[in-house]
Design a protein around this nucleic acid. Structure first.
Length: 422
RNA sequence: GGAGAUGUACCCAAGUGGUUGAAGGGUCUGCACUCGAAAUGCAGUAGGUCGGCUCAAACCGGCGCCAGAGUUCAAAUCUCUGCAUCUCCGCCA
């Protein structure tokens, strides 16, 4: 959520900044409602002040035996007026909130201008795209040939965009989760969280999935709960409505969770294999940072995510998303893209973002520089560290052998108990 | 799922309709005393949020006793709904 004071004071600046992400912001309705709200609020507050003043005198007047009936009649009128005005303010508040909640974050100045992912800026590359002296297969074929992935039976028991992992396939998924969490907690200083997989509406609003993108989420029938699309939602909301102290920052959490996405609007895209599923596993990194250093924290967070890909020996590159490709809540995002031989290109495996105070304002997450200073919003950051299913896909494809077997990256062998799937 | 109880500030806790601007402790902070600390004394410890006036601060006002709705001239206090916690029962991994 943007600062309402900024929308008031410099609307033209906000409109200009949001054009960079191809978002046309029309503030006429906002400005009108905001002025109405303040007028009604000031009037209501003046009347309430009058109510309070008179109410305080009533016990004394009663004691003196004065007739208070005429005063009560007057106060009744006042009270009715206040009720009308309060209702009006409440309605306007809600209307304004709905407007502000659907305005995306302002891109950071360092974000390159652009329309879509073709305008993203490559920052660095690690490793070289894998070369094969035989005809390389796609991971869905490798997985089915080795009898470790079963898309057909997953479709039978649930539907499309689900996968059954079997045998060493299931073991590989589990080993990767374990390797990621172990690395982040022991090498990079993150505290592990295991969160609920369902959250209420307010949490989804706090991180920015709602109200705008409800169609992307799974809502649990007969409840007001949503299946989490990422551990970002419960983990960021851990500190909702809290005031932290500066010496706690940065707070660094990592969390494994299953993630659930409706994938509305992506019909026909990535229909084969593990790339785009309704349910997938992910280890997420989340930081709560002092605004002064949040961009340094974004760099280290991205590096922490890269670390696990380096450990697995998977070639990747890091791109800075252009303004048009930026997510709703983000001020700046680095995507980490792993080399996927079947696609013949790099494919997103992690998205690391600084949301600045956009989520913190929605969720009420603040900190104090010291005991006497005013509470300020923290900056929140997160990134995948990294997507597990896509890692399985990348390992199957990049480590496949001519005989159809797949070597296990050395770092995973202790977690797998074997160095080969055949 | 059933029955009962509870929800007041950083913590404990008083408060059954009006001068509550929420008692009293604890904690913490400052000051005094002290070489320093402890003890003691004094002071502060309701922050936050939304507004007004402002470059800003100061100042002034609205809200605030889990959340929301209601009754009333007036609600921490009465009523309803929801949420959370605790105890017991049922069920269950």
């Amino acid at each position: 959520m943007l600062d309402i004071k900024l929308l008031r004071a410099q609307p033209e600046v906000v409109v200009e900044q949001l054009k960079r992400r191809n978002f046309e912001l029309d503030l006429t309705e906002f400005t009108k409602l905001d002025a109405e709200r303040r007028a009604a609020l000031v009037e209501a507050e003046q009347l309430k002040n009058q109510q309070n003043t008179v109410s305080k005198q009533i016990p004394a007047l009663k004691k003196e035996g004065k007739d208070v009936a005429p005063i009560f009649a007057e106060m009744k009128e006042l009270s009715d007026k206040v009720k009308v005005l309060d209702d009006k303010v409440r309605e306007l508040d809600e209307a304004l909130r709905q407007i502000v909640l659907t305005i995306p974050n302002i891109p950071n100045a360092e974000v390159p201008d652009g329309n879509d992912d073709s305008d993203n800026l490559e920052i660095r590359k690690w490793g070289e795209p894998t070369k094969f002296d035989f005809e390389a297969k796609a991971h869905w074929d490798i997985g089915e040939n080795l009898d470790i992935l079963d898309f057909g039976r997953a479709a039978k028991i649930t539907g499309s965009r689900f996968t059954v992992y079997k045998g060493l396939g299931a073991a590989l998924e589990r080993a990767i989760i374990n390797y990621f969490l172990t690395t982040h907690t022991t090498k990079s200083g993150y505290t592990e969280i295991f969160p609920p997989y369902m959250v209420h509406r307010n949490s989804m609003v706090g991180t920015g999935q709602l109200p705008k993108f409800e169609e992307d989420a799974f809502k649990v029938a007969n409840t007001e709960y949503f299946l989490i699309p990422t551990a970002e939602v419960p983990v960021t909301n851990l500190h909702k409505d809290e005031i932290l102290s500066a010496d706690q920052l940065p707070i660094k959490y990592c969390a494994y969770s299953a993630c659930f996405r409706a994938e509305a609007g992506s019909a026909g895209r990535d229909t084969r294999g593990l790339i785009r599923q309704h349910q997938f596993n992910k280890v997420e990194l989340v930081k709560f940072a002092n605004p002064d250093t949040s961009y340094d924290e974004l760099e280290t967070l991205t590096n922490d995510a890269e670390k696990v890909l380096q450990g697995l020996g998977l070639p990747y590159r890091v791109v800075r998303l252009c303004s048009g490709d930026l997510g709703f809540s983000s001020a700046m995002t680095y995507d980490i893209e792993v080399w996927m031989p079947s696609y013949g290109r790099y494919v997103e495996i992690s998205s690391c973002s600084n949301f600045e105070d956009f989520q913190a304002r929605r969720a009420g997450i603040k900190f104090k520089r010291d005991t006497n200073s005013k509470a300020e919003f923290v900056h929140t950051l997160n990134g995948s560290g990294v997507a597990v299913g896509r890692t399985v896909a990348a390992i199957l494809e990049n480590y496949q052998q001519a005989d159809g077997s797949v070597k296990i990256p050395e770092a995973l062998v202790p977690f797998m108990g074997t160095d080969l799937i055949k």
